[in-house]
Amino acid sequence: MEHKQVSDEQLVRQYVQGDEAALELLIRRHRQRVFGAIYMFVRDRYLAEDLFQDTFMKAIRKLRAGAYQEEGKFLPWILRIAHNRCIDYYRKTQRTPAVVTTDGYDLFEVLNLSGPAADRELMKTQSHQAVRELVERLPAEQREVVILRIWADLSFKEIAELTGVSINTALGRMRYALINLRKLKKQLKLSL
């Protein structure tokens, strides 16, 4: 079957009806965004690979159970699953969040947890490493917006809903994050 121009929604329908090739296209279409978001949250490539698999396996179960009802929004849907899998992982393996949000976890704590793992030489280029290091130096709330908007590709409205702030706050955090990244780059004399 030709999938080139098929929408995510159509692929979801085809997959639920038994077309395995539709799932493969969905994964290949969105793998970089999903993996990127997970990676920037956990900062550990091996763990990100595991959580990537876990995310899509969870999505498969949900799709088959008829739990997908977000017409036209497959990417935000799968990213929410990815986000929750990251949170679940830290709930099970690390510690109880210091401050519990409306979602039942402290995202900022999660963002700060995996420091030692970040020492591994897993990024492919020095440029990638430099960008990662810069982002890690941002205040948690700014880093969160950068990850969710640039790598997870959520809109500011979606970020605002996910993190419990206003859209203007999310926009402001992004602006300050970009300004701070530029300053950090100069301070550290990094070339990207």
Partner: peptide, 9 residues
């Protein structure tokens, strides 16, 4: 510059 990273799975 931020969009350079990271690679896929």
């Amino acid at each position: 510059e931020l969009r350079q990273v990271p690679d896929g799975p």
